[in-house]
Design a protein around this nucleic acid. Structure first.
Lengths: 241, 241
DNA sequence: GACTAGAGGATTGTTGAACGATACGACAAG
DNA sequence: CTTGTCGTATCGTTCAACAATCCTCTAGTC
């Protein structure tokens, strides 16, 4: 194994604190985390649909990791609520109930509205909201409906980021990750996402002029409508069988 | 190790659906979860103070479980933010920074205030809030300051439960569990908790008459004050060092 | 024929051991 | 005092094994 290369590393005479931001960069990840990354992607892609069982043996040999490591990865995803773990039966891709969808939107409404309510002047971080709106409009122009969907997620993530709380950010990441499990049921992402583009820009406008409660009202209306659409589609799909 | 659930377990003679609530009771737990329970308790007790290292070998042989199982338990607690995991170095009891404390109170303010704001009539679940107030008053009478502290936690948990969202409930559980890591620095729990008893009753009163925004204001003031006290104590302790 | 009981196979739960990789402390050399 | 080297303790990961549990399929009973 090669040790440190003496000549290539330049010494910066800056005091400690300046380097702390770089620590995240050299933080390596364990095998379990990388496995979890892979599985997370596959689930989001729909390769493992909700309800699918992930057998330790199959996945483990498929990915070339031991059962123990794989179990650690499973645990990570279970805590993200992407998988459910049934004792002695194995892990399954989470299947959201209608109650779950309702609760997810309950949380979104609580968090997102609270994040914008107090605004009375253009807050720091508003640029990221604007970026997400532009991202969505660009995706629409390119008829990239999947891209439109992710742009919408970015928009709402940027909204909650206005609260300025790492923990709220993480909560929102998890909420949206859960919701992605259910977005698959939307047969026509265009019809689902496209109407919200205008709303998003409108909300952005309110925020930019410091009208927090105006933004909140629009947001609440949006969330109610989206939830309704989703619940409808969900109910229909389950009755269709 | 008995995790007594004070909530009354009432038997409903209804078919099928009524039994679903009981599933949690007979859900067996894996060894890893039970180990996590034990460690969680020990951490809350202060046996493992913040910063302490939990060596796999020591703890594992101490508890009589294998390293693999113990690692699963560690992961559970790491995801609850009670432990931090440093690659190739091990797991440590989390040490909260002042920024962490600030963020925890930011989240509390966001969530708790949102949970009571919308109230315009006595909401379902208000009894549990009342129970927590009574619990605190009883603890005070018995000069049980530790009990007063947990009663206070119950009060705020009951408040957030008014939102009626399982995910918000869980968020709050995690937030308060993290805060417990820092409550240890309060040298005098009596002086810290006692003044809040009156405030709690006052907040309960507002809720009982359906005055949500009144409750919200009191709550916000309480949280600001508590945070300030905690940050002061924390800063002092770290400078004393 | 429908239902219950039980045997057998498959999968998970948990353990123990092993080996490489990494971090930390000690010690010697400059 | 700093730097390089080394040894030890610990972690990361894998493997193999066995016990516990679940699922399915068969066989028997009514």
């Amino acid at each position: 194994m090669s040790t440190a290369v003496p000549g290539s590393v330049r010494q910066l005479p800056l005091p400690g604190r300046a380097l702390e931001a770089d620590r995240a960069l050299l933080a390596r990840t364990s095998t379990a985390e990388r496995v979890a990354d892979v599985l997370r992607t596959r689930i989001a892609e729909g390769l493992f649909p909700p309800g699918a069982r992930l057998a330790e043996d199959t996945i483990g040999s498929g990915l070339g990791v031991s059962r123990n490591t794989l179990r650690e990865a499973f645990q990570l995803l279970t805590h993200e609520r992407l998988l459910t773990h049934e004792l002695n039966r194995g892990v399954f891709v989470r299947m959201l109930t209608i109650d779950d969808v309702a609760d997810l939107y309950r949380v979104r409404k609580l968090v997102e509205c609270a994040a914008v309510r107090g605004i009375d002047s253009p807050p720091p971080g508003v640029e990221r909201v604007a970026d997400a709106v532009v991202e969505g409009e660009r995706a629409k122009k390119q008829l990239d409906w999947q891209g439109l969907g992710t742009a919408n997620l970015h928009f709402h993530q940027a909204l909650t980021a206005l609260a300025g709380s790492p923990r709220v950010d993480e909560l929102m990441r998890r909420i949206l990750a859960e919701l992605r499990l259910v977005f698959h049921v939307m047969a026509d992402p265009r019809r689902f996402y496209e109407p919200y583009l205008a709303t998003n820009r409108e909300i952005l406008g309110r925020i930019e002029v410091g009208d927090g409660s105006g933004a909140e009202q629009l947001l609440a209306a949006y969330l109610d409508k989206a939830q309704e659409q989703l619940v409808d589609a969900y109910a229909q799909r389950t009755t269709d069988g």
